[in-house]
Design a protein around this nucleic acid. Structure first.
Lengths: 258, 258
DNA sequence: ATACTGTATTCTGTATACAGAATACAGTAT
DNA sequence: ATACTGTATTCTGTATACAGAATACAGTAT
């Protein structure tokens, strides 16, 4: 899966897959679902985590069949029952499709899916930042600003994973501070779906810089107590991210589809 | 569960449970999940539907244990496997809690849950109406206005179920027209959770009239092409609904909790 | 009477068995 | 050569079996 750059850029860039492969899916899993891990995980929890990582690595560009028998063998010879329960969970969360009496399949993601996910995410994160504003401490905000400046300083050194970490942590900070458990879970599910094409997504330094600038602006607005500005900027930030992903992954020039 | 009226009202009123009992849960299920029913339902689908109805009838006021063995027997002697899959689905959707190695339980809903659900619903429906506005035909809008006037005319005849039907259909009209499948599903899940205390909720004619007036205003704004007004009114409508439910169900006078 | 310990019982989570649907494929007709 | 039919095989969905965790409870000590 080679992507054609929509604009030339002489600095380092790359798809996530090129740079990190297997280790990234584990990192992504921790960032997205780490906090929700059970104290005493069941066999189903283990199967869910392992299959999640595989699905993310397969990505959203091809439909691939997942056989419960094969997976059960590969996951240390466990039985089909917990594997099927894990697969059911992934279907619920929108990462897989189950074709009745024909099995489980990874899903392909279209431009329509990108629109759905980012539109939803925009509405949810704007709600999150409004709920979070009075609950975020100055220390938390400043700590994240520092982290942001640190990453911006050496984006060239280890670009993509470091950027993804700080990006996810920024959005997680705001989401968690909302205090709305259902909102937190919904956003985690959307991010889980986004991870499906994160592996093919191409990250340009320019795009990462723009994102970090947006984050900075939002954090500064929150520090200044200007919630409306933070919300507007966050909405714009997510619209921009959507356009970036659409341009990168779906090059057929359908940017006009609103 | 007897509710104390926060204001006296001499016209007919009542909790849903008093008026409809078992038949209502089936009606609610159809309104919420009817469109998503599979052509060839599996045993799990059947178990899911039956258990959903039971859970709704139990409601969100008491924690009740659900034994997979007992349910399997009651659902025509099916086995535990599909019952557990259905229970897992209900946990995913927030209607049940699974206590690891101790079983499945219905959840009690607190004022915090009402806040979470309605805040989320507000953000999602506002997004829905913005996406739906250019996609709703004048015929659809007018048809719903007619239905609304019909119900308002004879609210006294069969108040609660008729009101619930037209209420859910109004929100479903807007949600579906958004064209965003994930948004539609998220809102169906929230409504599913709302159904948990719908049975204890008390419907006063005044409250129903206010809701219908809101609906009318939103539909007229959409007919006039005034999307912003429709969105604002919808946001207000849902905030009002939240306050109404909080006042009805949680009488401890915690309206101040924002 | 109350707290504690150890055993019996119940019940959950996972493994395995089995029936029937979907699929592959060989054989036949055109 | 291609389309079709019927049988063999594979695989999914559900039922059943089983091990170990949670619970109930009787018996004992204080």
């Amino acid at each position: 899966m080679t992507s054609i750059s929509p604009e030339t850029n002489d600095r380092k860039k790359g798809t996530v897959a090129e740079v990190f492969d297997e280790s990234l899916s584990a990192e992504l899993f921790n960032l997205i679902w780490g906090q929700e891990r059970a104290a005493m995980p069941t066999v189903v929890d283990y199967a869910y985590e392992e299959i999640w990582k595989r699905v993310i690595m397969i990505g959203g560009s091809e439909e691939q069949r997942l056989s419960d028998v094969t997976l059960a063998e590969q996951l240390g010879g466990m039985s089909r029952t917990p594997v099927r329960q894990a697969l059911d969970r992934l279907v619920q969360e929108g990462l897989l499709r189950s074709d009745p009496r024909r099995g489980f399949w990874t899903r392909t993601f279209t431009a329509q899916d990108i629109h759905e996910i980012y539109d939803l995410r925009g509405a949810l994160e704007v709600l999150a930042v409004r709920l979070a504003a009075p609950r975020l401490s100055h220390e938390d905000l400043k700590a994240h600003l520092d982290a942001l400046y640190g990453v911006r300083a050496d984006l060239d050194a280890h670009p993509v994973l470091r950027f993804l970490q700080v990006d996810i942590r920024f959005h997680t900070l705001i989401t968690r501070a909302s205090g709305n458990g259902r909102l937190i879970h919904s956003l985690a599910m959307l991010r889980s779906q986004l991870s499906m094409f994160q592996m093919q997504d191409t990250f340009y330094p320019k795009r990462m810089e723009i994102a970090l600038n947006d984050h900075e602006q939002i954090l500064l607005a929150l520090l200044a107590g200007n919630v409306d500005e933070a919300a507007d900027c966050l909405a714009r930030h997510i619209r921009n991210a959507k356009e970036g992903v659409l341009a990168d992954i779906f090059l057929e020039g359908k940017e006009g589809v609103s």
